[in-house]
Design a protein around this nucleic acid. Structure first.
Lengths: 331, 331
DNA sequence: TTGAAAGCGCTAACAT
DNA sequence: ATGTTAGCGCTTTCAA
C-alpha cells in the first residue's frame, strides 16, 4: 500500500502538494499536477480513509438503523441506499436493531461511536419514547428518517405518499363499480397508516360514497391479521364487494381467507394492497397494489443526508414521494 | 468526545497506561487501573476507532460480497452474520455486486481499500474466471467463502451439507412409497447443485431405485424454470409420482404448474424443495423442504474469519453444516 | 504556487 | 509497573 509520502517522493514534490491535487483544495501548477497524477497511477495509490478520517473527522460511512431485519421489504430499500451512497463515495453499515429500546439505543450509539457521518433511521412508532430519543439524536448527528414516520416534527423525513397512493387504489375500485369497499388498517398509530386511512376516506368522499364504520377493520401487521380481517368482513350482514388493505401482507392474508372458502377473486370479491412486495406477483391471483417508489425514496434520502453531512443544506425538509398504481388480477 | 489524553490527565497517569488498561496489553497496578476506569466512565470515553485503526492497521470491519441483493435468501444470512460479528466487536459492510465481472472486482477492491479486515464472499460459479480471482484475493486478505461454492481448493469454505440434505428429502419420499421421483437441478455447474444431485443419487441407491435419466430435469434458478420442469415431467409417458427440486423456488414453480392444471398436491403428485425460504410456509399447500442451518453457518463463518484475521488459526478448512428436514403438506 | 511543521488519537519500542 | 518518544497517513495553518 503506497502512501502519500511515496507519491510525493516519486513526483519530487511535498506531500502537501499531493494532498492538494487529491482534494482540489488549492490551485496547483498544471505540470506538477500531471506529474503527481502519473505517480499516483504508477503506485496505484489510494488515500487511507483511516488517516483521512482521523484528520478530518469524517468516515464516509452512513449508518442505517432498521427495526428488525425480518421484513423483506426493507432489503429493497437497503440495496438502493447502498447503491446511491456508493455513487457518492459513501459506504453504508446496517444495524438491525431488533427489539428492546435499550438495545436499540445501544445500536445507535455504537454506530455513532463507529464514526458514521450520518444516520438513516427507518420506521419507528411516532408516539413512543424512541421517537423523542431519535429526534434528539438527529439534532446532534445528521439524520434522515425514512418510511414509517411522523412528519410533523422538526427533522428531515422522506416517505412514500400513502395518502394519494391509497386514494388511487380506492378510486380504481370505485371506477370498477364497487360501492361497498372494506379497509384494513393497523391498530397502532403509525403515521403512514393514518395517512393511508385518510386517503381511503378522501377517495370515498370523491366518489360520493359514505364512510361506514363497520367496513373499517383494525388489526396488526402480520399476514394472519389479514386472514382475521377476511373472517370479520364475511361475518357482516352487508358484506363489502371489495377490500383494500394497508399493506400487501394484510391483503394476501385476506385473499387466503377467501380462497380457503373456495371463493373466486376478483369475481366474488376484489382485494387490493399497498407496497408491491415481490410476493404480490407470485401469489395467485396476482395482487393489485400501489408500488412504493423505492428507488426515488432511497435516492432522495441519500442526497438529503449527504447534503446535511456536507453542510450544503441544513433545512429539515419533509418529502413525500409518489408511487404508482399497479393493476393485477385480484381486482 | 473525550480522548485518551483527557482520560490520562484526569487519572493523573500517562496515556500509555490508559492504553494498557484499554487493551490489557501489559500488567497495570490494580489501584491505578481503578482510577483510570473511573476517569473513563466519568468522561464516557470511547477510543477512536479511526486512530486505533490508523495505528494498528485494523478497522474491525468485515466486508460481505454478495452476487446481487435480489435473492431474499441472502438477507437471512446477512442478518445473522451482522449479529455474530457485532458480538465480537466487528461491524459488517455489504457490497451487493450486481452483474459484470469488472464491477464485481471493483467492489472487492473498494472494500479492501475501505480497510476491511476480512472478506466473506457468497456464491460464485466454481468454473468461471471470478473463481480464480477470488481465490487470489483470499491469499492476500483473510477470506471465507460461503454457501454456493466449490470446496476442493485451498481456501476456507463454510456451506450447507446439500448432499445429506437432499438425501434425507428423497429418503423421506421413498419412505412414503414413491418409486418414481423426479429431480430438478440447475444447468450450471454450481458446486452445491452437484452436491445435491449426488445426494439424490445416493438416496435412490439406498432405496434400491434405479437412476433414470428422463427423471432428471436441468433448468435455471428462477421460479419459471420450476414451472417448465413441471410441464416437462407431465409430458413423460411414465410420469413421476413425486418431484424434488434443488431449491424451494424451483419447487414452488413446479407446484404452480400442477395447481394450475387443477391437480391436488400431495394426492396427485408430491413436491419437495430445499432451503426453507419464508415463501414455503406461505404458499398453499405448504412445502416440505430441508432447512438450511443459517444460524450455524453464519456463526461458523464469522468465527473462522475472525480466527484468520486475528491469526489464531490460519488453516483453510472446509466445513459442511447439516440442516434439518421439514415435513409439510406438499408430501 | 509550493513547502515545513504541527497534530488528529492512538499504540509500541524502549527506557527506567 | 509506568513514562517518554516516535510515528501510523493524512490535512491544515503558516510562511516563503
Amino acid at each position: 500500500m503506497a502512501t502519500i509520502n511515496d507519491v510525493a517522493k516519486l513526483a519530487g514534490v511535498s506531500k502537501t502538494t499531493v494532498s492538494r491535487v487529491l482534494n482540489k483544495t488549492a490551485p496547483v501548477n498544471k505540470e506538477t499536477e500531471l506529474k503527481i497524477i502519473k505517480a499516483m497511477k504508477e503506485l496505484s495509490y489510494q488515500p487511507s480513509l483511516m488517516a483521512q478520517g482521523l484528520r478530518t473527522k469524517r468516515s464516509k460511512m452512513i449508518g442505517i438503523v432498521i427495526p428488525s431485519f425480518s421484513n423483506p421489504f426493507y432489503y429493497r430499500f437497503i440495496q438502493e441506499l447502498e447503491w446511491e451512497a456508493k455513487k457518492q463515495d459513501y459506504y453504508v453499515i446496517i444495524s438491525s436493531a431488533s427489539t428492546g429500546e435499550e438495545l436499540k439505543k445501544k445500536y445507535v450509539e455504537d454506530l455513532i461511536h463507529r464514526g458514521v457521518d450520518g444516520l438513516i433511521i427507518f420506521s419507528y412508532k411516532e408516539d413512543n419514547k424512541m421517537g423523542d430519543y431519535f429526534l434528539e439524536i438527529s439534532k446532534q448527528t445528521p439524520t434522515v428518517f425514512m418510511d414509517n414516520i411522523g412528519n410533523h416534527r422538526d427533522a428531515a423525513f422522506v416517505y412514500a405518499d400513502g395518502f394519494n397512493g391509497i386514494k388511487e387504489v380506492v378510486a380504481h375500485l370505485i371506477e370498477k363499480g364497487h360501492k361497498k369497499i372494506g379497509f384494513i388498517k393497523p391498530k397502532e398509530s403509525y403515521k403512514v397508516a393514518v395517512d393511508r386511512y385518510e386517503g381511503y376516506k378522501a377517495a370515498l368522499a370523491d366518489g360520493n360514497l359514505p364512510l361506514e364504520n363497520e367496513l373499517v377493520f383494525e388489526g396488526n401487521f402480520e399476514i394472519e391479521d389479514g386472514y382475521i380481517a377476511g373472517e370479520y368482513f364475511w361475518s357482516l350482514d352487508r358484506k363489502p364487494s371489495a377490500i383494500v388493505a394497508c399493506t400487501d401482507l394484510l391483503a394476501i392474508g385476506t385473499m387466503k381467507y377467501f380462497l380457503n372458502k373456495g371463493m373466486k377473486i376478483p369475481q366474488d370479491i376484489a382485494v387490493a394492497g399497498y407496497d408491491d412486495i415481490e410476493l404480490s406477483t407470485i401469489i395467485q391471483p396476482t395482487l393489485t397494489t400501489y408500488k412504493q417508489p423505492i428507488k426515488e425514496i432511497s435516492k432522495t434520502t441519500i442526497d438529503l443526508l449527504i447534503d446535511k453531512i456536507e453542510q450544503r443544506d441544513d433545512i429539515n425538509k419533509n418529502i413525500a414521494i409518489k408511487g404508482e398504481l399497479v393493476i393485477r388480477e385480484s381486482t
